[in-house]
Amino acid sequence: MLDIRKADQRGRGEHGWLSSRHSFSFAQYFDPQQVGFSDLLVINDDRVAPGRGFGKHPHRDMEIFSYVLEGALEHADTMGTGSVIRPGDVQLMSAGSGVAHSEYNHSKSEPVHFMQIWIAPSTKGAEPRYQQKHFSAEDKRGNLRLIISPDGANDSLEVRQDARVYAGLFDGVETARLELPADRFAYIHVARGSVTVNGTRLTAGDGARVRHETALTFAHGDNAEVLVFDLRPNEESGLWS
């Protein structure tokens, strides 16, 4: 079963330099029916003006990853990491016992469009760590490419949770099928374009909780970019802190 939440039902944050859409409760946006799904707690769809961004701020006990759609995102943290994240790059910061970071639009003239996603870790107080890898468009074209997993399978980034994240690009006749293990949940987020999933049309910004499905088939894409989360069958989600 696909429980669909349309893009225009998401929370909104308009701050001049930042335009944000919240798939789940975040910051000043709270909906008791949208407090994460399993261990997936936050999906923020952010557009940041040139030269602006988020100053240094702390996190702990959270798996935080950024996925850039357009432009470039500049990252710095108290682990000594400094990097620029561009389309195709996936950045995963495990906050663990505590880390502070900043994120800015790397460009002084062009906006950056990216998604920041939070997954609750299975253990608390672990040593903070940073990972970043590039996954080419060819690797995701007509395919669901594993980008995050608990064990780093298929050269993916390692997350401290029983969760797997796939990224795919679909256009025209391209199609892919993801088998879901028994008693697993999934979450689908369409980052851009549109695509049919198990016969249901989803468009940019749409999300879908998935329960009691054995497979997901993606087809009939129109410049679609999607993220798919394979999650524990856990209905007890809680607000980040």
Score class of each variant (00 low, 15 high):
157 L>E: 01
139 D>N: 08
134 H>E: 02
125 G>K: 13
44 N>H: 02
120 A>P: 02
149 S>A: 11
85 I>F: 07
172 G>S: 10
103 E>S: 09
56 K>A: 13
24 F>R: 01
165 V>W: 05
12 R>W: 07
22 H>C: 02
88 G>Y: 09
231 L>D: 07
195 V>Q: 06
60 R>M: 11
131 Q>G: 08
108 K>H: 06
195 V>F: 08
196 T>H: 09
54 F>Q: 13
61 D>K: 11
72 A>P: 04
74 E>W: 12
136 S>Y: 12
164 R>K: 14
96 G>I: 03
50 P>Y: 03
140 K>D: 11
121 P>E: 06
200 T>E: 14
209 R>V: 05
41 L>D: 04
63 E>F: 12
144 L>P: 05
36 G>M: 01
192 R>P: 01
231 L>Y: 07
48 V>K: 00
183 D>A: 15
11 G>C: 09
75 H>R: 13
73 L>P: 04
50 P>C: 03
203 T>N: 12
238 G>I: 08
97 S>C: 07
63 E>D: 09
87 P>I: 04
122 S>F: 04
12 R>T: 12
184 R>A: 09
234 N>A: 09
18 L>Q: 07
211 R>C: 00
169 L>H: 07
232 R>G: 00
235 E>V: 13
199 G>E: 02
203 T>Y: 12
208 A>G: 04
111 P>R: 05
235 E>D: 15
154 N>K: 13
223 N>F: 01
109 S>I: 07
123 T>D: 14
58 P>D: 12
137 A>V: 09
156 S>I: 00
77 D>K: 10
80 G>C: 07
214 T>Q: 06
5 R>N: 09
163 A>D: 00
77 D>N: 13
190 V>F: 00
83 S>A: 13
11 G>L: 05
180 L>E: 00
198 N>H: 02
213 E>V: 04
145 R>E: 12
151 D>Y: 08
131 Q>A: 10
231 L>S: 11
121 P>A: 07
208 A>I: 01
130 Y>H: 14
62 M>K: 00
43 I>C: 02
190 V>T: 13
146 L>N: 04
96 G>C: 02
60 R>T: 07
106 H>A: 15
56 K>V: 14
151 D>I: 03
64 I>A: 03
180 L>S: 08
171 D>K: 01
164 R>G: 00
182 A>C: 06
158 E>F: 03
42 V>K: 06
106 H>W: 11
91 Q>I: 04
155 D>Q: 15
191 A>T: 15
59 H>S: 06
135 F>P: 01
31 D>C: 07
10 R>W: 03
212 H>D: 15
103 E>Q: 13
185 F>D: 15
116 Q>A: 04
15 H>I: 02
178 L>R: 04
205 G>D: 02
19 S>G: 05
220 H>Y: 11
164 R>L: 07
